[in-house]
């Protein structure tokens, strides 16, 4: 069943800067869609456009989520969707958590924004979520502040916050880019597990082809605001049709396979 349909999405930032240019996306319930591209490809702008969080930008086109058109939705209804049905995890968990509040408060706050729940009940939900995402001693850790956590733990908190309302769609914007590789492996494992158990669809935005290969069902390769290639992950990785996709796959130095003396490079266009 189709959960999210994006048609001809265009985002302008004024003075002729077009971040996204006629983008189409489709994401089915419970599926993982990888959106890959380099910086400036428009992938993060797309995710913010879906949530209606872009400021100072002109958004046109269609964004249909579960049968509702989001681009024309009023702020109030959009706010109700955010967090409850579409949640988001961002790249840098330290700057994305408010340093002045405990992690449990910030999770409980998300819960209470959409549920009639007392402080105590919401706190319990927060502790349960912390346990769910693998934070040891959740009772004690709940009362800690973000700066007392490591990078990986902070990203777990972000995920707990995003998933406490069991959203239909999780938008993860470079969720592991700021993390070390062994911590990245932990977080990707967690996302895999949560997807299996909660059934949340994930829009996974990343520049890392490896992350997409391990997690996504479908992939869209973005370049300069366009989707240059799309398809099932296996097809795109095995038989990339577009030179840009081929270049993107080839230019990343790998830890396995033959070792070229020089890496093939993408000829930058534009």
């Amino acid at each position: 069943m189709t959960l999210l349909t994006v048609r001809d999405l265009t985002v302008d930032f004024g003075s002729g800067i077009r971040a996204v240019d006629g983008l189409d996306l489709d994401l089915d319930t419970g599926q993982v869609l990888g959106v890959v591209g380099e910086s400036g490809s428009g992938k993060s702008v797309t995710s913010l456009a879906v949530l209606g969080l872009l400021q100072g930008a002109t958004v046109s086109g269609e964004i249909r989520f579960d049968g509702r058109e989001l681009t024309t939705l009023d702020q109030r209804s959009l706010r109700r969707l955010r967090g409850d049905r579409i949640a988001m995890v961002f790249q840098d968990p330290l700057s994305c958590l408010n340093p002045y509040y405990t992690v449990a408060f910030q999770i409980a706050e998300a819960y209470r924004a959409h549920h009639r729940a007392g402080r105590r009940e919401a706190h319990k939900v927060a502790v349960r979520m912390l346990e769910r995402v693998g934070i040891p001693e959740p009772e004690r850790r709940a009362r800690c502040y973000p700066h007392e956590f490591s990078g990986g733990m902070r990203q777990r908190v972000m995920i707990a916050m995003a998933l406490c309302l069991e959203p239909d769609l999780l938008i993860a914007d470079e969720p592991t880019t700021a993390l070390d590789v062994t911590v990245q492996a932990q977080i990707l494992d967690l996302l895999r597990e949560l997807r299996r158990e909660v059934g949340t669809a994930i829009m996974l935005i990343t520049h890392d082809m490896g992350v997409v290969a391990g997690l996504a069902d479908h992939v869209v390769v973005m370049h300069q605001g366009h989707a240059v290639e799309r398809g099932a992950v296996r097809d795109v990785f095995r038989r990339p049709q577009q030179p840009y996709t081929r270049g993107l796959l080839a230019c990343v130095p790998r830890i396995d396979g033959p070792l070229p003396h020089r890496l093939p490079t993408l000829e930058m266009t534009g």
């Binding site: 967090g83 840098d92 706050e109 972000m158």
Partner: peptide, 22 residues
């Protein structure tokens, strides 16, 4: 302009709460 304000909005908090609290 802080990221945690964006997070607060993404959580679906009312704008008044976002501004006052975050």
């Amino acid at each position: 302009g802080q990221n945690y304000v964006r997070t607060a909005r993404a959580k679906g908090l009312p704008e008044v709460t976002v501004v006052r609290r975050h």
